[in-house]
């Protein structure tokens, strides 16, 4: 018989209760009640990513492939080719890097409705190290034709993006944190496909942020507002397709754009925004606030975010460097 645990203890069984923003398991149950063609796959991570809740409710529609992520992706493609909407779940590092070819060849090229729940994205795995970090995944997935790429800022955004992308005919890469993200949405937002969400209005500059960066951007805007500097903050919940109109409006109306993302500086949100500006011939003060083009240090996640400036204070410094 197991003894009662110390309140400070936690194990795999209790871990997800400590991660209130990891809403995907619960949202899968919600969606599956309405849609009988949803199946859920994971690669030995059900107790870590919240899909165990789905397994409890819908055991016949839950498939565990064991630690075989590439197999899981191709199986999902086969299921999608046979009438199902498969949600595959694994760490974003494995989903985007280990399985890049399965994402490209088996579901993007074939245009099949697989949804990739790529959780623990960015550097949210902290001291687990580079093997468990996904800081290249936006670049990889947005280079795949037919792939929709969305990025959730918090637990409500996960739900909103899962709902908004349910009907997309091709595959969807849903970038998700580890579930410890502080909320930026009080309720589940109704995302419009391909549109940014305006989190705050202002004219001094625009921050276009995605994922974990949205909270840092909102915090930075609040700090600067105290000094009378009003920033526009946009949540790039959709990265592909990109809200190019919002990018160009921001350039025209605020004259300065800072992108904020938990990603390598190459090929991510910042790159996508820069491409839009350059192709439109728009000259604007512009800066990418991303992780360095390097493998990050080992530390707890919150320490890493402070170290790399993915906090309100860090983004304030970046804004000041941009607009002087």
């Amino acid at each position: 018989m197991s003894q009662p645990l110390d309140p400070a203890s936690w194990n795999i069984e209790t871990s997800t209760a400590r991660l209130p923003a990891l809403t995907m398991g619960d949202e899968l149950c919600h969606l599956a009640e309405k849609h009988s063609n949803i199946v859920v796959l994971t690669a030995d991570l059900a107790s870590s990513n919240g899909t165990a809740a789905f397994r409890e409710r819908f055991p016949d529609r839950f498939i565990n492939t064991g630690i075989a992520e590439q197999n899981m992706m191709s199986i999902a493609a086969g299921l999608a080719a046979s009438g199902f909407i498969p949600y595959v779940s694994t760490f974003a590092s494995f989903a985007s890097l280990l399985c890049a070819e399965q994402l490209r060849t088996d579901m993007s090229y074939t245009k099949l409705p697989v949804r990739i729940l790529a959780h623990h994205a960015g550097i949210s795995m902290g001291f687990y190290g580079t093997s468990h970090h996904a800081v290249e995944d936006i670049a990889i997935t947005r280079a795949m034709a037919n792939m929709t790429v969305v990025s959730a800022a918090d637990g409500n955004a996960i739900r909103g993006l899962m709902r908004a992308t349910f009907d997309v005919p091709g595959p969807v890469y849903i970038r998700i944190g580890r579930g410890a993200e502080k909320p930026v949405y009080e309720t589940v937002p109704a995302f419009a496909p391909g549109r940014f969400v305006t989190m705050r209005e202002g004219a001094a500059a625009t921050i276009i942020a995605t994922g974990f960066g949205v909270k840092a951007a909102v915090d930075a805007a609040e700090i600067l507002a105290v000094d009378g500097i009003e920033l526009r903050v946009l949540d790039a919940a959709y990265i592909k397709p990109l809200d190019t109109q919002a990018v160009l409006s921001a350039a025209r109306e605020t004259g300065a754009i800072l992108t904020v993302e938990e990603h390598n500086p190459h090929g991510g949100l910042g790159g996508a925004v820069a491409e839009t500006l350059a192709e439109a011939g728009v000259g604007v003060r512009f800066r990418r606030h991303a992780l360095p083009d390097d493998y990050v240090l080992v530390a707890p996640p919150s320490h890493l975010y402070r170290h790399y400036g993915l906090t309100g204070d860090g983004v304030v410094l970046a804004v000041k460097a941009l607009i002087g």
Binding site: I63, N71, S74, I75, A77, G78, L79, A81, S82
Partner: peptide, 8 residues
């Protein structure tokens, strides 16, 4: 793997 998915 795809065949496994189709058979499933």
């Amino acid at each position: 793997s795809v065949g496994v998915g189709i058979a499933l």
